[in-house]
Nucleic acid binder design. Structure first.
Lengths: 148, 148
DNA sequence: CTGTGTGCAAACTCTTTGCATAAGT
DNA sequence: ACTTATGCAAAGAGTTTGCACACAG
């Protein structure tokens, strides 16, 4: 037999691809993790908060708990499937694009948008103080709506 | 060179300078605001959280409430005496240096340190999307302790 | 005096945690 | 079966708010 088709979501090749990816990262492909991964990675790069993912999952009739969403986001981040983006003091955003790149942050709507790579660079990053190493250089270009 | 400001009221030169600055910003120089301003601006550039400032005030026997610390930090930020720094999702830091500059963030100790200006620049900042203006470009160089 | 600022505690938001139950292999 | 993940609700951290009292001008 083939793999058993899952509950209500789409079945077939995509599901097993995701399951394989999770497995390859050492995560058991549970229903919730597969469903959340489909939402996260199903349509291009996304920047999403735990609340946002939770709502979107419920909108798709995937009833995951908020605690599981947090767990999953952190686990995905640990294994390198996601990246945490710090742009706003109050919420944590997760980015499905783990490449080296930077962000616009639209203050009015609290939205995060990728800055295409190659368009911006950082000159002369100072060397780390002795005893420390640089783990990342983050650039955030903050935007505000022009309200004339 | 030590002047006994604080305690009951403010009689020294520093106190009145601070009072003048507050007044010039349209803020009434209350005891709490003057005391907090002395802590903030009294010894070079600082990066401090509300909790940190609250503790430091108590350490100096200036019993301000946490709510007042928050109010004051926000008021100072509004009038341009402070700048908010977003480096960590969980806490808000305030920087007494309002010039254009960037930061190191030491992840182990959650410390913020200025990167001296002129040592680092950002190339080719993309133009803002139509309808938006850039309010600021923030660079955070994240550091971790090398633990061999 | 008069209005603004302060302090307190309660409320709020986002996130984490503990433990019984459910699911994966 | 045996282990790990999930869900729930409660706890936790940081921040904000509402209202009575206190202080600055």
């Amino acid at each position: 037999m083939m793999q058993k088709t899952q509950s209500g979501s789409e079945c077939g090749a995509k599901g097993s691809h995701i399951r394989a990816a999770l497995r390859g990262s050492g995560l058991r492909p549970t229903r919730q993790r597969v469903a959340l991964a489909e939402i996260l990675f199903g349509k291009g790069n996304r920047h999403i908060s735990a609340e946002g993912l939770h709502e979107e999952a419920h909108g798709r009739l995937v009833p995951v708990s908020l605690a599981t969403v947090y767990n999953t986001l952190h686990q995905f981040t640990e294994v390198g499937l996601l990246r945490e983006v710090v742009v706003d003091g109050s919420k944590t955003y997760f980015d499905t694009n783990t490449d080296d790149h930077h962000h616009f942050f639209i203050e009015d709507s609290a939205e995060v948008v990728d800055i295409p790579p190659g368009q911006m660079g950082v000159d002369d990053v100072p060397s780390a103080p002795p005893g420390y190493e640089i783990t990342r250089v983050d650039v955030v270009v903050r935007l505000r709506r022009i309200s004339d």
